[in-house]
Simulated scan of single mutants.
Amino acid sequence: MRLDVEGVSVEVAGVRLVDDIRMRVDSGAFVGLVGPNGSGKSTLLRCVYRAMRPAAGVVRLDGDDVHGLEPRAAARRLAALPQESSSEFDFTVAEVVAMGRLPHRDRTAAKDRAICAEAMDRTGVGHLAERGFLALSGGERQRVLIARALAQQPRVLVLDEPTNHLDIAHQLEVLSLVGNGGGGGGVTVLAALHDLNLAAAHCELLYVLAGGRIVASGPPEQVLTPELLAEVFGVRAHPVRHPETGAVQLLFDLLPRSAPAGPPAPSPVSSLPPSR
């Protein structure tokens, strides 16, 4: 299913947070959204998964305005993993994952159990099925919420920092899983990612946001240049190639700061008393 963002702008309290964003995510593609804190990534994704209505523009799923869809119909097409998820009730893990089945009309108890079991198995949380969600670690909760999204069997996955709280092994597993269509094939993925190396390794296409606007887009090796990273992120980047995959990877250090103007500091030698 194709996702199109057409001229989306968002204003809150008179401040424009997102300005005329235009994006295209082809069916089955894994597209990354990257940018510094406050660049508008989460705000844009909220418009995509219907948590916020844009002040201007439209988000379309295969040509249909996502905000014009009936909620259950929208949930059958699109699942979201927001950056912050909370629950005031201590559901079990199995109950949380089963919530992903609610939008479907063709449900049966046996079918729901099988789909949820597979989703939990793929995200490595099957052994937690009877545990209370609130008793889990941050990483365990994140994997449970990803399992819920997969159990929803959407055509589009929208993920806001899906690797938050995960150790490196689970980061790689989760991105590989959603990049393969959640095990179902053909799923379109739009993900906001802080880790540029993970984005470069797993995304086919990147959109770079800064100040609420798209400043660059294209394949990772074309977009993640030292010049752009210096301008947008304020870091010095050294691109290298992954020895196994050949994907671009980045080494970082801070940009050198200019020395403050003023008289030069005295030499340590000249400040010593003369030798006798």
Rank of each mutant, 00 (worst) to 15 (best):
M1F: 07
R2Q: 11
L3E: 12
V5S: 11
G7F: 10
V8D: 07
V10P: 07
D20C: 08
R22V: 15
R24G: 13
V25H: 03
G32D: 03
G32P: 09
V34D: 11
P36K: 09
G38K: 09
K41E: 02
S42N: 10
S42D: 06
T43W: 07
T43L: 10
L44M: 11
L45P: 10
L45N: 09
C47L: 08
C47P: 13
V48G: 05
Y49S: 09
M52C: 04
P54K: 03
A56P: 03
G57W: 08
V59L: 07
R60H: 03
E70A: 15
R76A: 10
R76T: 13
A80L: 14
P82F: 08
E88L: 14
D90E: 12
V93F: 04
V96M: 13
M99C: 13
P103K: 09
D106L: 06
K111V: 14
I115L: 14
A117M: 00
A117Q: 09
D121P: 00
V125S: 02
V125F: 02
V125D: 01
E130D: 15
L136Y: 04
L136K: 12
G138D: 00
L145W: 06
I146S: 00
Q153V: 13
Q153S: 14
P154M: 07
V158K: 11
L159T: 04
D160Y: 04
E161N: 07
P162R: 01
P162T: 03
D167E: 06
I168D: 00
I168K: 04
Q171L: 04
G181C: 11
G182A: 08
V187E: 04
T188K: 05
L190T: 05
A191F: 02
A192Q: 05
L193F: 10
H194G: 06
D195P: 08
L198A: 02
L198T: 00
A201V: 00
L206A: 03
Y207C: 07
V208E: 02
L209R: 01
A210T: 02
R213P: 06
R213F: 02
S217C: 14
P219A: 09
Q222I: 00
P226W: 03
E227H: 08
E231W: 10
V235E: 01
H242W: 06
V248P: 08
V248W: 02
L251M: 12
F252S: 02
D253V: 04
L254E: 15
L255F: 03
P256H: 11
R257H: 13
A261H: 05
P264E: 13
P266F: 12
L272Y: 01
P274E: 13
S275D: 10
S275C: 06
